[in-house]
Amino acid sequence: MSDNKKSAMYDLTKGIIKENPTLVTLLGMCPTLAVTTQASNGIGMGLATTFVLVCSNVVLSALKKFIPSAVRLPSFIVIIASFVTLIEFLMKGYLPDLYDSLGLYLSLITVNCIILGRAEAFASKNTVFRSALDGIGMGLGFTLALFLMGSVREIMGAGTWMNIAIPAFSPMTIFIMPAGGFFVLGVIIALVNKLANKKPPQELGCHSCPNAAQCESYRKEKGECK
């Protein structure tokens, strides 16, 4: 029992720091870079992704016995896209400002590799309860990373934080431009690895990518084929 409890706790917390999807396993780079011009956008995007991740993890782990493996990926995508459409409706109705500022990237949650990656690596192998915990943890880790990115970029680039102006600070616009996004993410990943006393990642999170089994370049690196 105690062992069970411990592993449930681990499922929940591992995504937040230890296996943070953005900063450690390097998944879901596109929204991380695209919407983090403001801290509030980061939270909005993070929570929207968390919602989709938890729902799709629960549904996929409940349906794992019924989905034939040949059509696994398309079925996953359809289920995820349905939840994305749902959150689009909710956000349009209740948070129209956030809906406008996230724009296209809200639809692109469908192809966020964190969601597909967790579906493939965790939800399709574990129980509904554990998958839900995993979804919450990973989602919160993603939200945290986005909030961090958004805060740094908003403070440095616009001189505000959560839309509150910071006095006596002259912002550098480059940080809210695309180039600043790449730069801040690179520095944050380096910093996280320095603090964790680890070597920085050499590769993207290909090992948790749903396409890893088919991906020639990944298999080549692993030495599985010539």
Binding site: A179, F182, F183, L185, G186, V187, Q202, E203
Partner: peptide, 19 residues
């Protein structure tokens, strides 16, 4: 520097290409 080797350096290079 050792801390930047790999993905961090790649991202910073991407930032310069983006500029």
């Amino acid at each position: 520097p050792e801390t930047f080797k790999g993905i961090p350096a790649t991202l910073i290079a991407a930032s310069i290409v983006s500029v």
